[in-house]
Simulated assay, not measured.
Amino acid sequence: MGNRWSDSCRPPWQWRYCLTSCGNFLPFCHQDYGTFFEKVADEEGLSGWATTMGGSSDTRIWAGNGIQSVNLSAGYWNEHTDEETLDVVVCYQTAKLLKGVLKRCNELKKIIRKINRQQPAVRNREKRNKGCINTPFITFS
């Protein structure tokens, strides 16, 4: 595994992203939830992180059940192929971003409570899903 491309050859959205939807038709999370990750990255001194719409991922399953979710890039290229590689620099930055998120867990809880108050339809789904809406979810690609 290694760094196959230099950072200067790739647009930032290809290697430091926070997917917040599957295209423009299935949001994975409320805008405030996605923006929280951008804010944390900025506060932790991690450049280039931005929320963006993306393709399909397992995250859509969680989001489809009303769970606030994001899909963070972790530096994988050519996933699930013989050509799969990992950009360890990006992977390390993703770990640093997660450390920053965990340091701010109380702030994240407040954001989730605010979202739940704003989206009563989701709260009704929460009752059917036995409360899992309050558990944020993060996937990696």
Rank of each mutant, 00 (worst) to 15 (best):
K110Q: 14
S57L: 01
A41D: 03
L72N: 05
N24M: 08
I67E: 01
Q93Y: 10
L26E: 12
C105W: 09
N78Y: 10
H30D: 15
N71E: 14
E43P: 00
L72C: 06
D32I: 07
R104T: 10
G34Y: 06
Q31C: 00
K103Q: 15
G64M: 04
F25A: 13
V70I: 14
T51G: 01
V40Q: 07
F37D: 04
K39V: 09
N116Q: 13
G34P: 07
N65K: 12
F36Q: 02
N65I: 00
L46T: 07
Q68C: 09
L26D: 00
I112V: 14
E107L: 09
L86F: 06
V88H: 11
G100Q: 03
H80M: 11
D82V: 09
L72P: 06
R113Y: 08
H30N: 15
N106V: 00
Y76K: 10
N116M: 10
T59V: 06
K39P: 01
K110W: 02
Y92Q: 12
F36A: 05
G64A: 04
M53P: 05
F28D: 02
L108C: 07
T52F: 04
Q68D: 05
T81P: 00
L97N: 02
L102P: 01
S73H: 07
G45V: 10
C105K: 14
V88E: 11
I111D: 03
L19D: 12
G100L: 06
I115G: 03
I115W: 02
W49D: 03
S57P: 01
F37M: 08
R60V: 11
I111P: 05
R104Y: 09
C91F: 14
N106G: 00
T20Y: 08
N24P: 06
S47A: 14
V40S: 09
V90T: 14
T35M: 11
G66M: 08
Y33E: 02
A41S: 10
V70N: 04
T81I: 03
Y92C: 09
E79M: 11
H80K: 09
S57W: 01
I111R: 05
S69N: 04
E107D: 15
F25G: 08
E107T: 13
D58K: 05
I61D: 12
D32W: 07
Q93C: 10
F36G: 03
A50F: 01
S56P: 02
W62T: 13
I112L: 12
L97Y: 00
L86M: 12
E43D: 13
L72A: 08
E79K: 06
G66Q: 04
K109T: 13
V101I: 15
T59N: 03
G55L: 06
V90C: 11
A63C: 07
S57R: 00
K110I: 05
F28L: 14
A95V: 15
T81H: 01
K109P: 00
E44H: 07
W62Q: 09
K114N: 12
T35C: 12
F36C: 08
G48A: 07
T52A: 13
I115M: 06
C22K: 13
T59A: 15
F28A: 02
E107V: 10
P27D: 13
V70T: 08
I67Q: 10
L102I: 14
Y33K: 01
T85S: 15
S21C: 10
V89Q: 12
I111W: 05
V70Q: 03
C29R: 00
